[in-house]
């Protein structure tokens, strides 16, 4: 056995025994690369995810809703920061990760390339998008890589507030006027399928799943998680008195799960490739914010340097 093979088998034995991998431990290069890609994509999703919701902060229908939404969007920024810092423990620089987002080499969740055209969308995002995200994220709290798992524990605690505030928005609309009920149904019609796509391609078309599961980065397959999401959402939709836009949803006694229709993968890949309704706008907004903040970053650094020079001079005098 070569040295690398020995290290790899020791690494896999640790993973099999549920021993967490920490930043300075030996790990296969592919494990490191997979994690950097996944954690940074996850971080980018949190950051870009602020944009569709930020769209409604100034137009929230009441102060209560505005406070909730502001707190939620601030949480998304926080989640991005926990995740960037977890990615950095793998030996990448924050600035490089952000550059990859801006120049399009890094991806983020396609869901954020859809527009928020009504207030009900803020509710739908909380219920369906955060709901799907929670399905994905809860198992990541047990991910084999320690810093990622710890970041996800914090994220998941906070996501629960996000989903509940979203559902409450929809519940209020469901008890409102006819126009409000229509707004609710129309919004769910638009968000249901993109939320279903958040779990990624079907298992048969997801070539990296097996390796990620062996490394315990992933604990469930895409289709397993998607099924869980359908099963809970169908029941929750009843409380909102709405229909989900999938005529094939039907209880399957034999499987003990709800059956559901076929996802439009052409749409999915089209949005992934950059042709969704808001891909261009989202990245432009991020780049603009980053460029317009450059002087602030430079000024803060210059100030810090000046202050530390002044302090060291004072020390010399003393």
């Amino acid at each position: 056995m070569t040295n690398i093979q020995a290290l790899e088998s020791r690494f896999q034995a640790k993973v099999d025994d549920e021993v967490k991998i920490e930043p300075k431990d030996w790990m296969p290069e592919k494990y490191r690369k997979t994690l950097i890609r996944q954690i940074s994509q996850h971080a980018h999703s949190e950051i870009v995810g602020m944009l569709p919701e930020g769209n409604w902060i100034t137009r929230a229908p009441s102060l209560r809703r505005k406070l909730g939404l502001l707190a939620k969007v601030q949480d998304e920024a926080g989640h991005g920061l926990y995740l960037y810092s977890a990615a950095e423990t793998l030996g990448v620089e924050r600035a490089d990760l952000i550059e990859q987002l801006h120049n399009g080499t890094a991806k983020y969740s396609s869901i954020f390339n859809y527009p928020t055209t009504s207030w009900a969308d803020i509710g739908s995002i909380g219920w369906l998008v955060d709901g799907a995200a929670i399905m994905n994220q809860v198992p990541l709290c047990r991910c084999s890589y320690g810093p990622y798992a710890r970041a996800m524990v914090r994220v998941c605690k906070e996501e629960s507030f996000h989903q509940r505030q979203g559902f409450e928005i929809l519940l209020t609309l469901s008890k409102g006027t006819e126009a409000q009920k229509e707004m609710l149904q129309e919004s769910v019609n638009r968000w249901w399928w993109p939320a279903m796509m958040m779990f990624g391609p079907n298992d048969a078309d997801s070539p990296h799943t097996a390796q990620s599961m062996k490394w315990k980065i992933k604990r469930f397959t895409n289709d397993e998680l998607r099924q869980k999401f359908v099963d809970v959402s169908v029941e929750q939709a009843k409380i909102l008195n709405i229909t989900l836009p999938d005529p094939d949803i039907k209880w399957n006694e034999e499987r003990g799960h709800y059956d559901y229709g076929v996802i439009d993968w052409e749409e999915f890949w089209n949005v992934v490739k950059g042709n969704g309704p808001c891909n261009h706008e989202r990245i432009q907004t991020r780049v603009k914010a980053h460029e317009e903040g450059a002087w602030v970053r430079a000024a803060a650094m210059a100030h810090a340097e000046k202050r530390s020079q002044r302090n060291s001079k004072k020390e010399q005098v003393a």
């Binding site: 949480d75 920061l81 926990y82 977890a86 423990t89």
Partner: peptide
């Protein structure tokens, strides 16, 4: 966890916002 800041004062302020909301 960790975060980026220009100096120690900003690091404490950012830590307040990122880790103690």
């Amino acid at each position: 966890g960790s975060l980026h800041a220009a100096d120690e004062k900003m690091a404490i302020e950012n830590a307040r916002d990122v880790y103690t909301r």
